[in-house]
Nucleic acid binder design. Structure first.
Lengths: 144, 144
DNA sequence: ATAATAAAAGACTATTTTATCTTTTATTAT
DNA sequence: ATAATAAAAGATAAAATAGTCTTTTATTAT
């Protein structure tokens, strides 16, 4: 479904936002990697990409690290997914055909489209903030 | 979503079944690759896997090639997907967590599960035969 | 000013997936 | 029997993805 990079991205963003609201201090790569259970150096690379795209913010030096503001928390999951994996999942053909739409559909286009639309709707209506809140409540988890 | 191998597999199976019912003769790798627009040699490898798993049948020698019987046509898409990509898509966590279920869910488990279930239902209720019939009707396509 | 800190950037390695090419085996028509 | 045919099998190669390690740059507290 999503690439590993995208999976780590979503987990990281949720974690960073949760930490950003519950404490003033920023989070280091090490802290993030430990808590979302991802390879540290690879995570560092991913955080750079997210930072460049303003999905998260970063600060160098002592007391530096990654953080997010309220506006960034209002972002939805679709934006994160598109920033990392692109929109192929939502626009491309499930069977990989170069041409496939309502006019010239692949054999499973009709059945697949409503599912793809539901996925799109789910991702676009789910904010990072809402997920971080659920994480805070202790009803959902990012590791184990 | 699906691997390239899986995309080619589904396209191939639909094409082979369509040809198997509309003519008595078997289909060669070349014929298949041309018509589903896939790399010929790679397709040959995939057909071997499908054949070993009895998703399709094959015969060597002159007049040989690939074919499917009615029983194989009654197979659903989920079986093909699972044979090639495994069931990770339907059992694993969207965020890649090693542990994620109703009891200990990841932050988007609740939202994702119904979509995954719909996907599962769609694939398991769609037979190769039904897709080949649609293809025959000229309302859906495997190339272009 | 300087040392310490932490991300950014760059180079590199490993693994998996996708794809190609060659040889072997089985089958069939002549 | 033999030649032709077509899949099976095996060996490589290329590309994409995932992951690691080292050096540089920016920042801040001392």
């Amino acid at each position: 479904m999503f690439s590993k990079t995208c999976e780590y991205s979503i987990r990281a963003v949720i974690y960073i936002y949760k930490k950003s609201v519950e404490s003033e201090c920023k989070v280091s790569v090490k802290d993030i990697a430990t808590n979302i259970q991802s390879p540290e150096h690879f995570t560092a690379k991913i955080l750079q990409i997210l930072s460049r795209q303003d999905i998260i913010s970063s600060a160098k030096g002592p007391n530096g690290g990654f953080f997010m503001d309220v506006h960034q928390g209002e972002m939805n999951l679709l934006e994160v997914v598109k920033a990392i994996d692109g929109s192929r999942l939502f626009t491309g053909c499930v069977l990989g055909l170069s041409k496939c739409d309502d006019k010239v559909p692949c054999p499973i286009h009709a059945q697949y489209k409503p599912i793809r639309d539901k996925m799109n709707l789910m991702l676009s209506s789910t904010t990072i903030e809402s997920l971080a809140t659920k994480l805070d409540s202790g009803l959902v988890f990012l590791s184990k």
